[in-house]
Design a protein around this nucleic acid. Sequence first.
DNA 1: GGGAGTTATGTTAGCGATCCCAGCGTGGGT
DNA 2: ACCCACGCTGGGATCGCTAACATAACTCCC
Lengths: 395, 395
Amino acid sequence: MGCTGTAESWPGVADYVKGGDQVARASDPGVETPRPGYGAAAGRDTASFPEVTSRSSRSARRPPAMTDVAKLAGVSPQTVSRALSQHASVSPMTRARVLAAADGLGYRLNTAARTLATGHSRTLGVVAFNSTFFGPVSTLHGIEQAARVAGYFISVVSLRSIDRHSVADAVGRLNDQVVEGIVVIAPLTSAAEALENLPTDMPVVVVEGDPNAGLAAVTVDQAAGARAATSYLLSTGHQNVFHVKGPPEWQEAQGRLSGWRSALEEVGAEVVPPLSGDWTARSGYQAGQVLARVPEVTAIFAANDQMALGVLLALHEHNRRVPEDVSVVGFDNIPDSAYFMPPLTTVRQDFDQVGRTSLRLLLDQINSGARSVERVMIQSELVVRQSTLGTPEAS
Amino acid sequence: MGCTGTAESWPGVADYVKGGDQVARASDPGVETPRPGYGAAAGRDTASFPEVTSRSSRSARRPPAMTDVAKLAGVSPQTVSRALSQHASVSPMTRARVLAAADGLGYRLNTAARTLATGHSRTLGVVAFNSTFFGPVSTLHGIEQAARVAGYFISVVSLRSIDRHSVADAVGRLNDQVVEGIVVIAPLTSAAEALENLPTDMPVVVVEGDPNAGLAAVTVDQAAGARAATSYLLSTGHQNVFHVKGPPEWQEAQGRLSGWRSALEEVGAEVVPPLSGDWTARSGYQAGQVLARVPEVTAIFAANDQMALGVLLALHEHNRRVPEDVSVVGFDNIPDSAYFMPPLTTVRQDFDQVGRTSLRLLLDQINSGARSVERVMIQSELVVRQSTLGTPEAS
DNA sequence: GGGAGTTATGTTAGCGATCCCAGCGTGGGT
DNA sequence: ACCCACGCTGGGATCGCTAACATAACTCCC
């Protein structure tokens, strides 16, 4: 395998020339293929004589193709194909010869040609959304990682809005690329309907999407996380917990909202209508300014860390100490949250696992050839830090 | 150059009729094929079955191809191609007919086939890095946006380390996909050398990369931003400014470091060796704990907002007030920084513009067919908030 | 020891699009 | 009249690769 040198890339090396029957048998990798003059200068314009035209004349700088490798190795293109794609029966010697030839030429397989011939592309599509929020970005990242491990390419289309039309359009674009499956990161409830008329013959996995469409799905258990956070606050002596919710059109916001509510109901606490945020620190700050003025507020659960940050600032400006006067919990466990003032108690989501799992579900469908409706729920985990009172049982 | 005979005399009749399932009983062993390769294998007899099963027999569930559209519209595939790709001369009536047929069939152009035929893919490659840091993510986002506007697909390969090998590998993978150009987001100095032996015939733009490689490049003027930040601190009465720098292998860290240094030198202040961070809030916190103990420290410039956050926390824990006792400035203007405690003075970078500009440079190269070495520097901008003393001239 | 399996290779025919060139009808210029 | 340009259209050939079949040389096993 030595020889990683490769790099030089094809432009120079690519002539095997010597037509006819004899083929240069370059057996060892290092070998210089003898080059009969004819560098780049060669035949530029296509002559109109059949004899002369032959494919090689156009070459001006064409990257080497499989036939070139075949010729150099003295075998048929088909054998090259087999040697390079492992799985067929090729004698070790032939394989070595082919590999050497390919290496010497700097040959690279042409994906478009292979896709056309085989009908599949080893590419997966991801429909993502136009945001730089921590969650979606991390999820995308997780998917990308997992895909590479599995040997797939990822083609991403990111949308700015999630209506039926744009999702359909995105799926269409991916379809054009002959993707073998699609992951839709669909955090908005509006995405649900958009997903209904996806082509039925394409493997699909929905991440953070509607829990009841007939599609395979991976979701984080938002409600459980929110319930844990809220219950924790209640368990440390608070009579009630106030909530700053996320945008109602986000599934995650809904899940966190209902988890919070159920925890309150469980202990018979009053469910005070939550304040509305839009995930940004700004909105959290605004909500915080309201809450800070209400003496009864001693515990706040913000639907994400950003908003919790805003809440913290507002409380500080109103001289309400955290956690002595008010406890605050966020959601997401963004890296910075451990360095908020004070370090934030929050709920961790394992986005890498979300990525890995969604990819697994997708590959399962691809391999089995059938759509599945399996749904996987990823657990979340409460991370206790110093923005809440109580026994620091977790780090 | 002959070889690959093609031309020499072909079978008189290109029998184009596939005889249904039966195969054309090729020549018997007696026929000598002169040499491996194509050529004169020629003339089997034309299929004798009148009933032309034709391609449509295989159809099972194959998406419609151009020939299907052609058939339905009653024209040749070539005409369909022309009608769909606008730019050729087709009568309005024909075009309408073709469009209607395509629409009726739900036809979508097969990208792989087109790529194979034309040699280009309307796809651009991006080599990114395995991080969820705000800068790279935002840049990628900006590129994606701009690419879609320009009608290009984006294929992303993200690396986990930036050595020569992995960059070469990434570029190779993109090459396989027949991308028309590549944007390399190369924030590490180690990427510089990796870029040296890129294929020379591929348009490339480097973002945040080495300022002196012979490649087109887009960079943010880190040094100017850092200088502005530092000078601002000095102008508000501080005798000196202490720095928490980023990882030395990052170009941005270098630029910010040198900007800071030059601002100090400008006024003849002592350049105290900076503390080292790794972009994380944690590292900023650690640096902050050191700086908080030093009475002379009244102004700190952290190389990014995350580290500034950590610094703020450390100062708080040591009862040093911001900005009364110590002023703090960050870099990046991440969305949250406006809600730090106190809201952070920082330097804004326009990542969308970076994305747009790098795409423009790349498309210029693609369209002109020549590599350029144009370099564009994007200005950064000081955003003054409450973590610094002085006149609040900016919001 | 001969038909049945294996292994290693070559041959042919596409995958679905575009390219180049040739074949039509029209006009217009000479 | 003739010829050629022009607008529109069709007919291969081809892009680079692989699936499917064909072939030849061996091994096996009863």
